[in-house]
Computed example of a mutant assay.
Amino acid sequence: MSANKTTTTGQGGDKPSEEMLTEATRVPLWDPEHDDVLVCRQVRQETHDVKTFVFSGREPRDFRYSPGQFMTFELPVEGMVTRCYTISASAARPYRLEITVKRVPGGPGSNWLHDYMVPGKEVNVSGPGGEFTTDATSDEKLLFISAGSGITPMMSMTRTACDLSEPTDLHFVHAARTPSDLIFRDELSLLASQNPGLKVSLTCDSTSASHSWTGFSGRLSLQMLSLMSPDFKDRKIFCCGPGRFMDGVRDMLREAGFDMEKYYEESFDFGAETAGTFEEHSSVAPEISGQTFRVSFSKTGHVVECSPGMTILSAAREAGLLPLSSCQRGICGTCKSKLNSGEVDMQHGGGIRQREIDQGKILICCSTPLSDVEVEL
């Protein structure tokens, strides 16, 4: 004998309207100007020294970002350090973010995340930001070249393309030291088997008896690249990895006669004097006339002359200081500092919130003095 069922459909028994359902299920957008806290929901061990950290908002939030963009994390180590980590997740899955981080010996940010970031822990962030992105579902022929943890923006682009439809014609080349260092190896193999437009080629500098390996061996070379992607000269190339790796890729492509106008790269190198999101083409800077101002650094006591057109970051380096910086274009927010006095012209690219500007903070990489200034450095 079956029981009678009663279904409630709303007042007066009417079915809920599409508008009512949409309103009930709508998730607020993540607002970079106001939202600044992520909660860790999961930690995954990818390799022996690489972990993926999955985050969402305190309350459900819809994250809108382009695959390949990054978030800037404020980590409570050595007082406070700021680090940029590329989102490795698919942009087509908007209710959570993932970053994939390699433990770097002596690296305060990566070691803190590996040792202390656990589900339930909160962290302050800003972003997303960055311009290193492309639509891998377009008709363009693409080639991704990555090494080590430089795989993360490429993985976000590839995952997004596979979620939305499938890559039309994408070759994905990744290099690692050993088979045990290959990040996302199984997932890339699965995606390639499910998406005919995706071709994945992996190479390892060295192999060992403990890990079976039948792929390419040795450092990426022009001959190897020609075997992996015979028509690479016809493709738009995106590259990310350690600085020396990208130097080698650029040299290799120039040797092959590749059109470098179709080459894009990204690197966040906190130890380098210069690090950009895209390859810089050399040019002669115009002479700038104007007044020289004094820049005082309150914490160290240094005082330097800042020539017309010179940024505060350049002045700090002339003083022998090495403030943390990365993109040098006002995008990542790494060099955020307090302006104690004076005025500056700050031409930022979104790496600082308006409320932070109202609190007297600046990005020293893109701020030029308009008067004598004092900066909290």
Score class of each variant (00 low, 15 high):
R329K: 11
H348D: 13
S17D: 01
E59C: 05
D269P: 04
Q354H: 13
Q347C: 11
E305V: 06
G350M: 00
L188G: 02
D186N: 09
Q194G: 08
G350C: 01
T6V: 13
L222T: 15
A319Q: 13
E18M: 12
E46S: 10
Y65K: 08
G276R: 08
T52W: 02
I331D: 04
F53Q: 00
T277G: 14
G120A: 14
G79T: 04
S283G: 08
L142C: 07
D186F: 09
C84S: 15
G129R: 07
E266I: 05
R159F: 03
C162F: 02
R103G: 09
S337P: 03
L190H: 10
Y116P: 05
D269V: 04
P179Y: 08
T152N: 10
K361I: 05
T152V: 07
E280K: 13
S126W: 04
A209R: 15
R254F: 12
T274N: 13
L222C: 14
D49C: 06
M117G: 11
V37G: 11
F55N: 01
F63Q: 00
Q194I: 04
L198W: 01
C239L: 11
K262W: 02
K102A: 10
E280C: 09
S189V: 08
A92R: 14
I364R: 07
Q11H: 10
K5G: 06
H174S: 15
E255N: 12
I99C: 00
M154F: 08
V54Q: 10
D49N: 14
S326L: 01
L170F: 09
G243N: 09
P286A: 13
G106N: 07
G107M: 01
V118R: 14
S298D: 09
V304E: 05
S180E: 14
T214P: 04
R26P: 05
T207K: 12
R44H: 15
I237T: 00
T368A: 13
C204M: 12
D186P: 06
N111G: 10
G13L: 02
C204N: 08
G342M: 02
F144T: 01
D269A: 09
K338V: 06
F232K: 03
E23C: 03
S267F: 07
E343Y: 05
V284T: 13
D234K: 05
G57Q: 03
